[in-house]
């Protein structure tokens, strides 16, 4: 059964028609990636899914219920967490406080404590720096923090926007390994990436977005083999 079903989504950024009838589906347990150039509408789509932007037209069904146009907090509560582009950690707060805020809507202090330990086990670097202001972390550490913070909400669906942006190759590898691990433990993932090679290597299925429209979709293998995708997004080899 599909966990997330988006149909004919139209979103405007002021006067700009950013998404023009996008339809896609994410099944429970999958890693689905959206690839496309800068400005294609990938981030707009994620922001609409998490309630930061309201769609003008179209439907978003999550676990059989419509969430199109719902408030961001009720979408988090329903089990969708969004790790935004550029990490957006609270730079004026410590690493620990950032992680704590990820569990803002939860009341089960015992469960929160356990998940804190889980985040620190996944990212030992964050444990070392837990009293440090998060603005002083490196880009890779901030990405870890943003992901750890999002996991504190116990999401069933995790939206990741450009997790590899601006990171050293070794750090990109680490982050992608963690994405795979998170998925293995049962969280469904919708991944937006410009690094199409890397994204297709861990994805089950993929969509290619161009100027607000889905132009190609298929399994990761199909896309990796497609001449068109190779030429435009995989560096032409």
């Amino acid at each position: 059964m599909s966990m997330l079903k988006v149909d004919n989504l139209n979103v405007y950024y002021g006067a700009i028609h950013a998404l023009k009838g996008v339809s896609l589906e994410v099944n429970e347990g999958e890693v689905v990636t959206l690839i496309g150039a800068n400005g294609a509408g990938k981030s707009t789509l994620l922001k609409t899914l998490s309630g930061l932007l309201k769609p003008k037209e179209g439907t978003i069904d999550y676990l059989g219920k419509s969430i199109a146009g719902s408030a961001a907090q009720s979408i988090v509560k329903a089990g969708i967490s969004h790790v935004p582009e550029g990490r957006r950690v609270f730079a004026n707060m410590t690493v620990e406080e950032n992680i704590e805020l990820g569990a803002f809507l939860r009341k089960d202090s015992q469960g929160i404590k356990q998940d804190f330990e889980k985040v620190y086990a996944t990212f030992p670097r964050l444990l070392e720096r837990r009293k440090q202001l998060s603005g002083t972390l490196s880009g890779g550490e901030q990405q870890m923090l943003a992901m750890g913070r999002a996991m504190m909400a116990k999401p069933r669906l995790l939206l990741l926007d450009e997790p590899s942006m601006g990171l050293a190759p070794l750090m990109v590898k680490t982050i992608f390994q963690v994405i795979k691990d998170i998925n293995k433990e049962g969280t469904t993932i919708l991944l937006v990436e410009q690094n199409a090679n890397m994204a297709l290597s861990i994805a089950d299925r993929a969509y290619v977005i161009e100027t607000g429209r889905v132009i190609i979709s298929g399994t990761a293998e199909e896309l990796q083999a497609s001449e068109e995708v190779k030429l435009a997004y995989l560096g032409g080899h």
Binding site: A72, Q73, N92, M93, E97, L101, F104, A153
Partner: peptide
């Protein structure tokens, strides 16, 4: 803590469910 988060980045705070 939510107040400090909102004052730093209101949109990111929304993503925490605030």
């Amino acid at each position: 803590k939510a107040m400090r988060a909102v004052s730093h980045d209101a949109e990111a705070a929304k993503l925490m469910g605030i």
